[in-house]
Design a protein around this nucleic acid. Structure first.
Lengths: 189, 189
DNA sequence: AGAAACATTTGCCAAATGACAAAAAAGAGA
DNA sequence: TCTCTTTTTTGTCATTTGGCAAATGTTTCT
């Protein structure tokens, strides 16, 4: 749980009692590679914090193609905010790309913490804004880059990930086909 | 200012006194087409609410190409959050695409309102999360769509905008060249 | 109106990427 | 180790998109 505490304290101060309260609500959970943390069609009812591993958020487009929207790495919250906040069905799956270890909060506990701990809401909002800003910042440039540039940017961002994930996940994230990606890899070597 | 009040009250309740206080800090400003609300290299020091008109956020990539990152329409806040929150230089320009009317808050006043009005911070966070989620939701699908689909999606989203903005802005937003976009238009007619 | 500046369309060809299928490589389980 | 299955690479060809330049259309200013 130390990782979570360190992470939280970057965004604001809490005393030991408050921290203990937060931790007391978190449940450790392991999710094996390829298993789901959340599924499309259901309402998100949990917030997760990834201690170890990589997850991805994906959906199916109107041609039935599976599209990876983004990857989430260790030390980040994972939750479909739109679904969680508004109680509407999620359109995305959240899947473990590698074996993962999470700390999970139920919506009820999460809400209770927000109501109880003064300043916790501010910290949560900072965390969430930062994550959302990061998502935009990562996803946005892809639109105007060519395939090779996209791949190189991804490599720079996730150098240690690239060989641990299936080609298909990465290709759909980059918006190119598997074969194109395979050729791009070849050309770079 | 009525637009602003209506907008705010969608996200939470405030009494008349609180609303008046907020409005008292807002300064109306007109920005002519092509003029800037904020510039790259400067620290964002204002939050704007667009009453009328369309703005865009853009930057220059490493080839010197101007890229439109997104458009912001009426009834939305406009601010480079990363710059505003962290006091770092912005990497983007915020420019009026059409003549615009805004309500503008200085950072100082904005901060004061956050400190003074109970519940205002929650409302602001909701507004900001929603806007950020929308940005991701709009920008993300572009990556995996072909040029024509991108154009059609944009048309659906901004049917009344498409003929009021230069082709070049839209092309760079969609991640394609002007000539391609021109051809796509032709094929659709 | 006329000139100049700017924006859009079009033509031509090259380069990048996709579609589909088969081969090769890697991984999983008996 | 030997299948069986899945993933990745490769080949071939079609399609999409880009680059560049010229032509056309539009706006702005005097």
């Amino acid at each position: 749980m130390k990782e979570l505490v360190n992470y939280i304290l970057q965004f604001g101060n809490l005393n030991q009692q408050q921290i203990d309260l937060i931790l007391s609500k978190g449940e450790e959970r392991e999710i094996r590679k390829e298993n789901y943390f959340a599924e499309a069609g259901k309402v998100a009812a949990e917030v997760g914090f990834i201690i170890d591993g990589i997850m991805r958020v994906c959906y199916y487009d109107n041609k039935g193609e599976e599209i990876t929207k983004y990857f989430i790495e260790e030390n980040n919250l994972v939750v479909d905010l739109e679904s969680f906040d508004n109680g509407i069905c999620s359109s995305c799956y959240v899947q473990a790309v590698t074996d993962c270890k999470l700390i999970v909060f139920s919506k009820k506990d999460w809400q209770e913490l927000l109501d109880t701990i003064i300043g916790w809401d501010t910290i949560v909002h900072k965390i969430i804004s930062k994550a959302l800003i990061q998502k935009v910042a990562r996803r946005s440039p892809l639109v105007s880059e060519d395939a090779t540039t996209r791949y190189l940017s991804f490599m720079k961002l996730f150098p240690n990930v690239i060989n641990r994930i299936p080609l298909s996940y990465l290709a759909s994230y980059l918006g190119i086909t598997q074969s194109s990606l395979s050729r791009i890899r070849k050309n770079i070597r």
